[in-house]
Design a protein around this nucleic acid. Sequence first.
DNA 1: AAATCCGACAACCGCATCGGA
DNA 2: TTCCGATGCGGTTGTCGGATT
Length: 375
Amino acid sequence: MSQRKGAAMAAVTSSKHHEDQEMMMELRRGPWMLEEDNLLMNYIACHGEGRWNLLARCSGLKRTGKSCRLRWLNYLKPDIKRGNLTPEEQLLILELHSKWGNRWSRIAQHLPGRTDNEIKNYWRTRVQKQARQLRVDANSAVFRDAVRCYWMPRLLEKMAATSSAHHHHGDLPPPPPPPLHPSHVAGMASSSSPIYGSHDHEQDPTSNAPAGSGGYYQRYPVDPSPSTSTTSGSTSAAALPPVPCFSELSWVDQYGYGPYGYTDLDGAGVSFDDSAALESLGLDGLDLGPADSNVYSDTTLLDYLNSTCAGGTMMTMMGGGGSVVHNSCGGAMGGGGDADYRPCLSSWRTDELVVQASSARKLGDHQHQWGGGGI
DNA sequence: AAATCCGACAACCGCATCGGA
DNA sequence: TTCCGATGCGGTTGTCGGATT
């Protein structure tokens, strides 16, 4: 645009306009060079961020202010986190996208070090790809159910596996737990929103997060003892709002975890009879039973968790509350609402997890594959 | 080994919003 | 109140490198 405009301004006679024209004619586009990055970083080091057009004029860069801003925010800024998204981050993106849609910058605010561009690209290249393969809209209820009932558990398992690997290999321990705020616990079980249902699209789920907690979606160790779990102690199952139903499918993944299932948004069960879509997802080996029985008997999320989480992965709901269920070991898992989701990992019972995983891998090729490196 | 395909991601573009004159 | 420049945001495109044929 600038180049086109520049070409149209041949009649400009003032020196200032002439300089502007010259600058616009020389505007660079495309990939940034090392020298340009250095120029930009040096300028910002001296003058700070902002006033991008001024920066573009004064820094010696032959770029637009927009381009400079983008380069800084998406690439050069010191706190940018490089590398693959962790399962925790992927889970958070899925959750927040379900609440806010394509509000990338808003989502990015809750993933420290990640940019909206990175999250957007992740969504388009990974998540939407799966939706295309399913031949469903990425915003459809069916797809959301798949995300909720398949990907999210998988990501939780990956997180548990990562934790287990750290435990067994002596890697760096997970970060220390963020400080808990009394309002978090007080807010638990105060809402009955489903994890993937209609949400208040304006309320910030982190609004109750303690100041300086460093991002609201973090790992922290959990006391494995049911009797000493303060988290579970304040939210007995009897006092909880209704647990979202979970339509169970008798199937386990290549790691031996399962069953996984689909459920509709109101938890009443869903019929999923699109065999082509199942095949495209790699679920064609799934035993769906008789054709007229594809609405599966509901089990509770609690049952599901007890059967799949191997005791090591839990999600604790803080802040806004929501449906919370406890797993068999005293943790709590919740879904829904504008809450503060904190997937809690511990190394407890990870030996069992590893045994399950290794035995599952021996089952061979008849179990389905979901692809390689995550979604 | 070459051609093609495809995923990942950096960068650009157009539009919306905000704030100051 | 209106105008206009600066900035932010989301959609889209371009490019590169690895995988596949």
